[in-house]
């Protein structure tokens, strides 16, 4: 029981890392980043490569987000910035095109097969928690999620950057008039979102097969989280990620053949009953 809950929560953590980035980027840039899954996948591959070169999991965990954040900044600057004045659909098209390029780049560099990253030393055992054996790495995943989540909240709610960010989300013109370079804030937010995706990829690499298709598998779940959680709402994203993670973990336990069906049916029901999302208090945000 407790094992299932912990597995659910660790899945929720991965979903949260991705959905938080998606939601942040959406809130700030108004862009649904279709390539978020591709960045996650790229993060996993970079982590694998760094680990292969250095044999250090720490280095992989640190370098993957930094490199992908840089890539994110480049993408935002050259590919998304020219499109802000156009329809939102254009930005979606752009990020969709990026998926094709990033996936092909990965195939070009790492080939078609999947890679395995071993569990880091000291994390490969399991410990008893309230009567059931839980893999140490699951707990590490969970702790990472909580730490990053807390850090993110601190950043957004308590720092000057966070203040600028929140202001720029709702009133970009006003913030620009106050002498703040909103363009740069956007680049920073996209880079941050990309870094979160890469971090998710890096921590997922030892427990999931690292392969080209991994990005798309998880991104659909993330879209479900973002829609369930209410759009552009980080607290909602946490709640929805935990909900979906637990649903999938318990589903794995009780109805393994029906997880996908239940996930998508939940989404359809929510859209029919509360199109603004389960966890948003105000009326749905229009895109």
């Amino acid at each position: 029981m407790i094992g299932t809950i912990l597995i659910g929560l660790s899945v929720a953590m991965l979903l949260f890392l991705l959905a938080a980035g998606l939601t942040l980027i959406f809130g700030m840039l108004g862009v649904i980043n279709f390539a978020h899954g591709a960045l996650y996948m790229l993060g996993a591959f970079v982590a694998f490569e760094v680990y292969n070169q250095t044999q250090s999991f720490c280095a992989a965990l640190l370098l993957a987000p930094i490199l992908i954040a840089f890539l994110g900044a480049v993408i935002e600057f050259f590919l998304l910035r020219p499109l802000y004045d156009r329809d939102h659909v254009e930005q979606l098209l752009m990020t969709f095109g990026l998926i094709l390029i990033l996936e092909e780049a990965v195939r070009l560099i790492w080939g078609l097969g999947y890679r395995d990253l071993p569990l880091p030393q000291g994390f490969d055992g399991s410990i008893p928690v309230m009567g059931s054996d839980v893999a140490v790495y699951r707990i590490f995943l969970l702790a990472t999620g909580v730490a990053v989540g807390a850090g993110l909240f601190w950043l957004i709610e308590r720092t000057r950057l966070g203040m600028v960010l929140r202001a720029a989300m709702s009133h970009p013109a006003m913030v620009r008039a106050l002498g703040i370079r909103v363009d740069r804030v956007r680049t920073v937010v996209f880079a941050l979102g990309a870094a979160l995706a890469a971090l998710a990829g890096a921590v997922a690499a030892p427990v999931l097969p690292v392969q080209v298709g991994m990005g798309f598998t998880i991104i659909v779940d993330c879209f479900v989280v973002v829609i369930l959680g209410g759009l552009g709402n980080i607290r909602g994203a946490i709640a929805a990620a935990i909900f979906l993670g637990l649903l999938q973990a318990f589903g794995q336990h009780f109805f393994p053949a029906w997880i996908e069906v239940v996930t998508y049916t939940t989404l359809i029901l929510v859209l029919l009953i509360r199109p603004q999302g389960l966890f948003s208090l105000s009326a749905g945000r229009k895109a």
Partner: peptide, 25 residues
């Protein structure tokens, strides 16, 4: 009928999720 309950780019996400359901089925 289902997807057009949301706006703008979210239609894309909803239709995608629905199509994935059909694909899975």
């Amino acid at each position: 009928a289902i997807a057009l309950r949301v706006n703008g780019v979210f239609v894309a996400l909803t239709t995608l999720a629905l199509a994935q359901l059909i694909h899975h089925l």
